[in-house]
Design a protein around this nucleic acid. Structure first.
Lengths: 240, 240
DNA sequence: CACAATCCATGAACCTGGTTCACAAACCGT
DNA sequence: ACGGTTTGTGAACCAGGTTCATGGATTGTG
């Protein structure tokens, strides 16, 4: 059934168009300003057509987040081949995440919004799973680094903590810092600038606290900076 | 002007009623279900009256969060008098926070919602400042502990990092973990249970990484548990 | 090719719920 | 008691997400 296939493809293409356009509109006008009718108009379709693809506005947003997450996850696929020790690979993950957040300032905000219980509940089971699945490679990358570190002795043998649970630390630290950095006026009120620079130092403290070798002292700014530069250079080189 | 005062007081009392009732409704029916008209009805006032106190629904929510934050902040006032070392005091802050989050499951969710850029922008300057001011004692408590730790040598002298920026680490870690714990289905998807237990271990890793004495090895579950018990007992004793 | 039968895009109507505002009641000073 | 002002009221308003009756396009059949 060739015509069936074509229709399917066209449908897929249209969904992609909707998602792309929505992403674009969010980028330019902000999450707040996104309206289903405006989006439909921008795509030159009727409002109702949107609802043949997305059960609700939240569903659409989840789809946008999923697409971005897939792109993000792509960056982690080749992580293990980096010529870096496991600890530096972990730093590479954090830096990649930071760069991604800088390049996609809306993504974390969108994720924060979607993961809010009130909003999360509005998203269809299907889309929720798709979003979680899209993020899986990121989690896998983290767990993978932890496992390799344990295998080759960079990290002491685990005591009542799985690789996933180990990865939870930097994940939470990252997420929390992004949240704080995104809340306009919050950190400024407490006289804190450059939260993301501090994130890296706290990250090293966390890793060093777990005795992840080779240790980097968070309290030596020059050492921290040098390590950041080194890993950044390798990332640059490998991913062009 | 005695009658002016009385009116002022009555107005204040009514605002309090609105806030209390809103909090109660959120607790029972969830953030999602809160409606201005229902809230007004529950308070036996007209919908319009609500808007003499709050510029918008978000404003009202910010007021609820502010009140809860003030209660929360209250717990930190007497922190310095705890018969504990600085590092254990820091743990006491985290534990107090954890207990508070457990007792007020909506509060973190509400805060997460309010700090979302899209929502934050809807809140009046005034309320935003009030919320930040309410949280100030918490930040002060953290900074205070850091400063005392530095003074008496529990923590090495700072290198390019203020007390506030030092406190950013545990804050972000805490916040991020609460976020993750609140996103129903997220951690389950990655086979992670009890995220908040792990929070404590990661917290110790972070502190130990910064060489905060006396060090606690995050990788010794029994030691971590014992320290948690000890601090919990002191908290219990001091605050009855 | 003509004619049903089916599908599906359409966009106006619907509905929910936050916000406003014309009105009236309460309150105040004289 | 009476004009003026302040404040509470809730029905009307409005925005924007969602639905659905309609009709045009597409597919299958004689």
């Amino acid at each position: 059934m060739g015509t069936e296939d074509r229709k399917q493809r066209e449908r897929q293409a249209r969904e992609q168009l909707f998602i792309d356009k929505a992403h674009e509109l969010i980028r330019t006008d902000g999450l707040l300003a996104l309206q289903m009718s405006k989006l439909a108009a921008a795509c030159e379709y009727a409002t109702g057509t949107l609802y043949q693809h997305f059960a609700s506005k939240e569903d659409l947003l989840a789809a946008v987040a999923t697409r971005t997450t897939i792109q993000h996850a792509e960056r982690f696929r080749r992580l293990p081949e980096l010529p870096l020790g496991t600890r530096s690979q972990m730093l590479a993950i954090v830096l990649t995440d930071l760069d991604f957040a800088a390049a996609n300032p809306d993504h974390y905000r969108l994720m924060q919004y979607l993961l809010t219980e009130a909003v999360w509940a509005q998203i269809s089971q299907e889309r929720r799973e798709a979003l979680l699945t899209a993020a899986q490679p990121i989690s896998d990358a983290v767990s993978g680094v932890v496992e390799r570190a344990r295998e080759n002795g960079d990290l002491p043998p685990p005591k009542e903590i799985s690789a996933e649970e180990m990865g939870l630390g930097p994940w939470a630290l990252n997420l929390g810092m992004q949240n704080l950095a995104n809340a306009r006026g919050l950190l400024e009120a407490y006289d804190i600038g450059q939260p993301l620079d501090h994130l890296i130092r706290h990250f090293h403290a966390l890793m060093t606290g777990w005795r992840w070798e080779p240790r980097v002292d968070p309290d030596e700014p020059s050492v921290v900076r040098a390590e950041t530069e080194r890993v950044r250079a390798v990332l640059q080189e490998t991913f062009q």
